[in-house]
Amino acid sequence: MPSTADGRRRARTSHRADPPGRRTSAGPEWNEYLSSAAVILAGVLVVIGFGFVAARGLSGPEKAPPLDPPAPALGDVRAPAPAGQGLIPLVSPTPTTPASTPPTTRPVSRDQLRIAQGPVPGKVDLSKEGESDWVHWGLDGTYSLERDKGGRFRILEGTPTAPRFRHSLSPQTFTWIGGDPVATTPGTRTGIRTCGQGNGFTVTAPAGTTPRILKIYLGAVSARGKLTARLSTGKSTGSTLLDNRGGTLRTAVVTVAYQAPRSGQVRLTWTTDVAYGEGCAGVALEAATLS
């Protein structure tokens, strides 16, 4: 029978003969520990699974999460906001205005007329002052009319009223060159006159969008004369008075500055408003210039 010492040597030899990395079977104590741990782990998993199933049963069927709202179509600026949030203001796109013809605007009205009265200088050069035209009345007779040869008849006299007379009473002198039918004169004091209330003269000149100045040299004897100016293509009017109770001729120059909205005429009416004397009381006319 082998001895106890031989048995021990065989046991040690058996352990040393196992190859490296290979574990020997565990003893009965280690197996008991593993079996207990497996039982506990299985119990925990069962409890967790039961709780999950119970929770789903109490909350009812699960709802699918809401989908993101679709992106707005082009031009759509009103997208619904998510529940529980206020509306988010969106900037409205700037509308594009189609190209169109600009609205037609009325031109600014040039309907203007101003009247000023002043004294007559001692000598008046009609050809120098009247850049566009000039006229003079009464050099050679009651119905004589001297005018600018190149003035193209811009200044015209209307139908005269009777009675009508030539006079040489003007305290001033009038000169010109380049006239027709009288080419030149060193100076004349002549003119024409009429008698009685309501009688007088009319003078016209062209009007338009170009500013113009018409000067008329006139007078009154024992009368109050009234000059009225009016545009044929506008609403502007103006007037002035020349009063003389004496028996000698009182003269003045009336300057009419005007501009019309379109082509037309300016019309001047110079009449006896009041006749003071019993003789030939009335208004007189000497010359006119246009520039």
Results as ranks from 00 to 15, higher is better:
159 T>G: 08
33 Y>W: 09
47 V>E: 09
110 R>W: 02
1 M>D: 10
132 S>A: 15
15 H>V: 13
80 P>E: 13
89 P>C: 06
122 G>C: 00
262 R>I: 05
280 C>I: 03
134 W>G: 14
224 R>H: 03
24 T>S: 09
79 A>M: 12
135 V>N: 05
118 G>R: 06
268 L>Y: 01
74 L>F: 00
82 P>L: 07
219 G>F: 00
81 A>D: 13
274 V>P: 03
79 A>V: 08
193 R>L: 14
64 A>Y: 04
75 G>T: 05
189 R>L: 01
96 T>K: 13
224 R>T: 14
125 D>M: 09
122 G>E: 08
274 V>E: 15
132 S>Y: 10
232 S>Y: 00
97 T>C: 05
140 D>C: 04
144 S>W: 02
166 R>P: 00
48 I>F: 08
287 A>D: 05
273 D>V: 03
184 T>N: 15
243 D>F: 01
213 I>N: 11
200 G>Y: 04
10 R>Q: 12
35 S>W: 01
243 D>I: 03
49 G>I: 06
273 D>S: 10
271 T>E: 15
245 R>I: 07
36 S>I: 03
60 G>V: 10
201 F>L: 00
209 T>I: 07
66 P>Q: 07
94 T>A: 14
39 V>W: 06
85 Q>A: 12
190 T>Q: 13
255 T>H: 10
67 L>K: 15
5 A>T: 15
155 I>Y: 08
109 S>P: 04
147 R>M: 10
162 A>G: 04
249 L>F: 11
73 A>W: 01
147 R>S: 09
115 I>P: 03
180 D>K: 06
6 D>Y: 12
161 T>N: 07
135 V>R: 05
2 P>G: 12
236 S>V: 01
137 W>A: 15
141 G>E: 02
148 D>V: 01
257 A>R: 04
250 R>F: 03
165 F>V: 09
4 T>Y: 11
208 G>H: 12
142 T>F: 03
255 T>N: 09
67 L>Q: 08
60 G>T: 06
207 A>N: 00
270 W>T: 04
248 T>M: 06
96 T>A: 11
205 A>G: 07
74 L>Q: 05
8 R>N: 06
165 F>W: 08
92 S>M: 11
145 L>Q: 13
192 I>F: 02
113 L>S: 04
242 L>M: 06
119 P>Q: 14
162 A>L: 07
286 E>R: 05
2 P>W: 02
162 A>N: 13
32 E>I: 06
52 F>D: 10
248 T>K: 14
152 R>A: 15
37 A>V: 13
250 R>A: 06
21 G>W: 01
285 L>K: 10
14 S>T: 09
47 V>R: 09
165 F>K: 12
120 V>G: 07
277 G>W: 11
215 K>H: 08
125 D>G: 04
267 R>H: 08
4 T>C: 05
189 R>Y: 01
51 G>F: 12
87 L>Q: 15
